[in-house]
Amino acid sequence: MKRTTSAWSAVPAALAISLTLTACGAANEDSGSGSSASGSASSGTSVSGTIAGAGASTQTVAQQTWKAGFEGANPDATVNYDPIGSGGGREQFLAGATQFGGSDAYLKDEELAKVPASCGEVIEYPVYVSPIAIAYNLKGVDNLKLDATTLAKIMKGEIKTWDDPAIKALNEGVDLPNTAVVPVHRNDESGTTENFTDYLHAVAPDVWTDKPSGTWPVSGGESAKGTQGVVQAITAGEGYIGYADASQTAKLGNAQIKVGESFQGPSAEAAAKIIDESERVPGRGQYDFAIDIKRDVASEGVYPIVLASYTLACTKYADQKTADLVKAYLSYTVSPEGQKAAADAAGSAPISDGATKNATTAINAISAG
């Protein structure tokens, strides 16, 4: 990984990019802290300066919304977010090039080992939870139903046409055409890909033998960069199918996924339920609230293909002004006001009280080092 010598409080000019348009989670453990962060964009003391973040494209709409609300209350503050993808966001954060990051997958052990000493302790918590839709473009088919095994075969290229017996068996009475199936995947390192392949590997392991990865492991099909690229590819191609944050697939068909004995489509409420059933990853730092999502859930009304998108930050910044600005902005993103704004704009589910308490504990640990 390329390192930079920039301080955690400094924003290189090349990285001070403005936000462009391009998903809250809950750990099942309370932190035990009684401290709390500001519940609004402004707590009465205006902050100033510029900070930059980069990462998950799934957070783009939420970050745009948070930026607008926060800067409206703090006119001397500027928050930039570059939606370059989770992998790029983690790299820039670990290199000290950004003050915070966004990632659809939590930091791996080998990445945690690369956190600079100047960062203090790494902060990591779910800020945005959203279903990953299985989006498709198939004229005349409005309510496609799929199970994990059939979906895995589609994405591996083993099912070639839409009237395949495996699809027909799940969609009785639906007139499925003899159109070619074209699976679409991300060609950049992506937390969305890692969450999707985690689901396939957990629920259809006999078919999807590859381990979860942020890099698509199967050859063939079509590829596209970023969430928008995948959506655009599916939109342009009859018979195309792929995976993308549900906030950006409203104009496409969204498959219903078999959970237990029923089928569930993507929704914020259904996604939030599986997060509440998931557990905190053991053996990590006191301000690290990463969770392992329970993919093989069988409860009715739960959608299993979800991502918990994280905020990455540090407990130490080089000067008080930067520390105050980072702390204020992150406090706003997890506040009821900020979470409602993101839910209204992006269709995410507001994080639970337990997740908010955990995030607040981590944010309150931020100081100048």
Rank of each mutant, 00 (worst) to 15 (best):
R284E: 02
H185G: 09
R3G: 02
A355T: 12
N195H: 02
A349G: 07
G226C: 11
A268P: 10
G69H: 00
S331I: 09
T333A: 13
I159H: 06
H201K: 12
A16Q: 13
T215M: 11
I351R: 12
P350T: 04
G44F: 03
G226A: 02
S46P: 05
V297P: 08
A152Y: 08
A97V: 03
I159V: 12
A68C: 05
D245C: 12
E110W: 01
Q339W: 01
K357N: 13
V230G: 06
I275M: 14
A13K: 07
V184Q: 11
R186I: 10
T311N: 15
D198V: 03
G49C: 13
T235M: 13
L176A: 13
N178M: 11
N80E: 07
N143D: 10
A244M: 03
V11P: 02
E91V: 06
E121Y: 00
A13N: 12
T58G: 10
E158I: 03
I241L: 08
I132P: 07
D319Q: 05
R295K: 15
G96T: 00
A290K: 04
A26Q: 14
P126I: 05
S367V: 04
Q264V: 15
A271D: 03
Y125E: 04
I366L: 06
E277P: 03
E261N: 15
V207T: 14
S262P: 08
A345N: 03
K114N: 06
L330H: 09
A290N: 01
E300P: 09
T179L: 08
S299N: 08
G157M: 10
K294P: 00
F196L: 14
L170Q: 04
L15W: 12
T227M: 04
Y136H: 11
Q64F: 03
T161E: 08
T150D: 11
K273A: 13
K321E: 15
